[in-house]
């Protein structure tokens, strides 16, 4: 049961990275690739019908973590108290920026919320990346639990590390540029004209930076948490995720040249899914590694809920996911093709 639920939550988080990832990506590059009000409304119409559903992957993954690994949920959420509250505030600002912008035509009003949308999206990308970095690096977990962690201390990934140190910042930065590139391909796929052209022009440098930072983060991980690599080596199926990332990394450069927007977007999706899945699979069975005493770490097997309840949850979860796939198929089919806010895709 513990490995099944670890896999389920890891899969939901990787799915969240791909799906809400492109919303964040659109937010990050939005002010650069969409310049006039009409262009910005097109960009927002591209994510408008889907961003809210995409965000639910995070909420649902949180709920599933709560029921399957209550100890992890309680320890991690209270330990990352400040970071998570900042995430909440940024999610509030991101969501309301999209909604509030539409309701007034005043250009200053729109300029203000456009900036809020961009800054909140970029900050969220960094914080989520840094959170991932914390899971790999480990946290000062004691016998009693995890005391509320400082946001930063001396920026060194030692025993007294804060949530942000140079390693987790590096992962955060990698997330920022990767999502920028991912969002650019989504916009290229869903829009036409100047927004599409500028997105494609921006995608290439973003992906080159992503590959460089990916290499740097991989090297840093080898130094900070070498066990991730031995884990992957000892579980050959993990290489499937590595392969997915590499194939995606090839696609993000190969497809745009041929004008295949959807293939480029799917490639960046594959890259992101593969990268998050590799990191979580390499970290298995750890949820929270203790930097103080490895024996105090929270793993899938020492924090899983009782089997009886989790068997029931597996039944409803499976039914639920079939339904969700149905909703998503219907949503994307209904909204397929290029969007244009002026021809009634806005509201």
């Amino acid at each position: 049961m513990d490995s099944i639920w670890f896999t389920i939550i890891a899969g939901m988080l990787a799915g969240y990275a791909v799906l809400d990832g492109f919303d964040f990506g659109v937010g990050i590059i939005y002010r650069i690739v969409a310049r006039t009000d009409a262009e910005r409304r097109d960009a927002l119409a591209a994510i408008g019908p889907v961003w809210d559903g995409n965000e639910v992957w995070l909420i649902a993954a949180g709920g599933v973590l709560f029921v399957a690994f209550p100890k992890v949920y309680a320890t991690a959420f209270s330990g990352f108290y400040m970071a998570l509250n900042i995430v909440l505030w940024l999610l509030i600002l991101r969501g309301l920026a999209i909604e509030f912008r539409l309701h007034q035509e005043n250009p200053l009003w729109r300029e203000f919320w456009d900036t809020v949308f961009s800054l909140a999206s970029a900050s969220l990308a960094i914080v989520f990346g840094a959170t991932m970095g914390n899971l790999i690096r480990g946290v000062p977990l004691k016998e009693r639990g995890l005391s509320g962690m400082a946001l930063f201390t001396n920026f060194l990934p030692g025993r007294d590390a804060g949530i942000l140190d140079w390693y987790t910042c590096l992962v955060g930065l990698l997330t920022l540029v990767a999502l920028a590139g991912h969002g650019a391909f989504y916009l290229a796929w869903r829009t036409e004209g100047a927004v599409r052209d500028r997105s494609l022009a921006l995608a290439r440098p973003a992906w080159m930076a992503t590959i460089l930072l990916w290499a740097a983060a991989t090297a840093a991980t080898a130094w900070i948490q070498p066990s991730v690599f031995s884990n992957i080596a000892s579980r050959p199926w993990c290489l499937g995720f590595v392969g997915l990332s590499i194939a995606g990394a090839w696609g993000v450069f190969a497809f745009p040249k041929r004008g295949r927007d959807l293939a480029a977007f799917l490639s960046s999706s594959a890259f992101l899914f593969g990268a998050v899945a590799t990191a979580l699979a390499g970290n298995y069975p750890f949820w929270l590694r203790s930097t103080l005493d490895p024996g105090l770490s929270l793993t899938a097997s020492n924090s899983i809920s009782e089997t009886q309840g989790m068997k029931i949850a597996l039944v409803w979860w499976s039914i639920g996911m079939v339904l969700v796939c149905g909703y998503y198929t219907y949503l994307f089919r209904s909204m397929r093709g290029k969007v244009s806010a002026n021809s009634g895709d806005g509201y």
Partner: peptide
């Protein structure tokens, strides 16, 4: 969490 979490996860 093992009990209350069922409802919260199902809500999502």
């Amino acid at each position: 969490g093992e009990v209350v979490g069922q409802a919260l996860a199902m809500e999502g």
